[in-house]
Nucleic acid binder design. Sequence first.
DNA 1: GTCTATATCTTGATAGAC
DNA 2: GTCTATCAAGATATAGAC
Lengths: 193, 193
Amino acid sequence: MKHFSEITPAAARIVDAAESLIRSVGYNGFSYEDVSRMVGIRKPSVHHHFPTKGELGVIVVQRYTHRFTERLEEIGRLHETAAGRLQAYCDLFSETYATGRSLCICGMLGAESNAIPDVVQVEVRRFFEDNAAWLADVLKQGAQAGEIQLKCPAGMLADYLLSALEGSMLLGRGRQIDQGPQHVAEVFLASLR
Amino acid sequence: MKHFSEITPAAARIVDAAESLIRSVGYNGFSYEDVSRMVGIRKPSVHHHFPTKGELGVIVVQRYTHRFTERLEEIGRLHETAAGRLQAYCDLFSETYATGRSLCICGMLGAESNAIPDVVQVEVRRFFEDNAAWLADVLKQGAQAGEIQLKCPAGMLADYLLSALEGSMLLGRGRQIDQGPQHVAEVFLASLR
DNA sequence: GTCTATATCTTGATAGAC
DNA sequence: GTCTATCAAGATATAGAC
């Protein structure tokens, strides 16, 4: 299987379509036919770039995780305080949800975990581990600097915040409302003061 | 469409199977063939009880919501304090997840919201609204009684807790770990003191 | 309530030409 | 890189017998 960084422009358009479809209807909710329609090519042309659906799924998640990681690094550079970093992190989710009630790719695939190829599942897991570790780190640094007070272990709080963010998107979509992760940062940060 | 309370024992076994399948692989992850295998009858026999998949989905969610509501009433009777009620509420989710990393039916269907029949979506929405209202009520009563301190509006906190619970199941499954909603009550209640 | 048989469509995937 | 043609399997669903 090729690496996501080596894909051609034609393949990238397919990955774009697949990413958008997974966000909206999930891995088991879209087909090669859907992708081909969105990109404007025929089904076998999609298979030419990604022989199996599993390979396509893997590339989608790998590229997503890579881009997300870049945003995390950017947040680290732009914000000095834990509160600032956590707020910016939550904003990533708010912005995603604000775009047509889009879910996090890995939130969607996490729910579908039992019904997707193992190779895709592995990538989803990596995304969550990376995010939980990054959040725990931000919380620990903030506590050491005396900016925030941790009433629970940092790892537990990190998991908790990530859960609330992913869950708020799921809830918002399920309730068919525009209110998604917008309040999560507010409530979470209030609990650290 | 018939009401969930009027289903025959044969139909109930089909609903059991469908509920378990939705929990595990989602609405778009199971087929009538899967149901027929689990129940031990043929596909057309499943259609005899539930002509369309949408009708089956509706009955699954209606029964689930009804049972869940009964548990909420029970919690109201058994526990006097807000903390006790919230802890018992969180335990409902923990117990579900502890059973083979099962998700909440409506958490799963909330994610799949864009890819399920409208009639099912309506039921999912009702479940979330009911739960959010119940939680907001518990929080309000607890605050009035002076048991807990609300740093944010009750409705916002209710949504937040529900998000964290649903999200923690999704996260746990995505990370393939047994740790699910167990810590949510702990962290949430700590933030109210 | 359950069955066999069947219809119709969609799905993921391949062969081979241009 | 894209196409037409094709396939085998699976999906939802119906007809009609027992």
